[in-house]
Write a protein that binds this DNA or RNA. Structure first.
Lengths: 205, 205
DNA sequence: TTTGTATTACCTGATATCAGGTAAAAGTTG
DNA sequence: CAACTTTTACCTGATATCAGGTAATACAAA
């Protein structure tokens, strides 16, 4: 088994945790995806435990790369906080399981053992997150058109309709129409609610 | 020394890391601030290493509580990602240092040793973050009072003055006053800009 | 080519926000 | 206790937003 994490203490922690699992041997500990891909080229690897928030290449992309070339390798993801969409993405890219770093030692052991047997495993907290009835239908969030984004961005900076019109060389009335369309698109009743929604969904970057 | 973190693997990792530091003995490992405050009541503690993102009570508030009652205890903060404002807040609340979890073993050891000698210590990455020319003067962000936060939160949900008044059993005019005070406090010209500022600075959680 | 979305633009009226000033009661800190 | 902050509350007028409807041009997809 190989652990990939850019936090030395996490690696150390997992070593300690797994030292009493007889069937598992931590072969290597590394701090980046690139190192893992190199290693996997010339060594036999059964199981990989990777942090999702790695520098350069994210854990999700790393998982994808591994699975494309070596589909038999079991890949388990880890992170501190977890969002439903992240976990789902990871699994969709071939991940065999997902564990929150706040999981207990027992959970870690169980998950790893079951994953080896071919199951898709989740730590308890992840289970509850994944099985949540996904808050209404907030998944299929519509996206902003180019112009709408321009306007939303200026709105988020506190600009008002006339100022936006001046800045984008548009009519006051045009900006007004865009505003209304954006509000309707997201079913928000005013700019405050809109900005909250946009920022929380990273739609303004 | 006591380690407070809600991630078992991190605690395990730190144990492993510090087992070869002779002058330090990890007395206790616990997963919440409440446990620490209980423990500290009846035991002598020299140094505490706390995670910033703890459930219920954040590491910053925990640090504050500790320092109020036991100013001689050395408190070092930790987190995975770090933001300038977070680190500054922690130090302002009496923290003796801040370490990123991605820090190397060496850094951990150095920081802890120096902190014991009375220095304020930062791991390398934190240093660079702290010493950044801090985008203009966005540091000294005032904080919201309890009531102001209530109102700001409802504003972010798109509620308007009258609705907020009803929900909080206040006069329309009172809410109006709060709104104005909040806008003034952050020098924002409307709610849209305000929400942006608050969300980007994590002031609404 | 037709359908659909995006972008532009105009009009009106009801309602909300913002900015100005004022002030008392309650709670907190030195 | 005194000073300060917080929370509560009222008044007014100017300006902005929101909701409703309508419509032409442009550009991409079916």
């Amino acid at each position: 088994m190989v652990v990939v994490d850019d936090h030395p203490i996490v690696i150390s922690g997992i070593s300690g945790l797994l030292s009493d699992l007889e069937n598992i041997e931590i072969v290597e500990k590394m701090q980046s995806g690139a190192l893992l891909l190199d290693y996997i080229e010339s060594n036999e690897v059964d199981l990989v435990l990777i942090d999702i928030f790695l520098p350069v290449v994210t854990g999700i992309d790393l998982c994808k790369s591994i699975k494309q070339k070596y589909p038999q390798v079991i890949v388990i993801g880890m992170s501190s906080q977890s969002e439903r969409s992240l976990v789902m993405q990871f699994i969709q890219n071939g991940g065999n399981g997902y564990i929150l770093k706040s999981a207990s030692f027992e959970e870690f052991k169980n998950c790893i053992n079951k994953a080896i047997e071919g199951e898709i495993v989740f730590s308890d907290e992840v289970k509850t997150i994944v099985s949540q009835p996904l808050s209404e239908d907030l998944d299929n969030i519509p996206s902003l058109s180019r112009r709408e984004k321009d306007i939303a961005l200026l709105l988020s900076k506190g600009k008002q309709t006339q100022e936006i019109a001046d800045e984008l060389f548009l009519s006051f009335l045009t900006v007004q129409t865009h505003r209304r369309n954006i509000l309707q698109k997201y079913k928000t009743k005013n700019v405050a609610e809109l900005i909250t929604l946009l920022l929380k969904n990273n739609l303004l970057d």
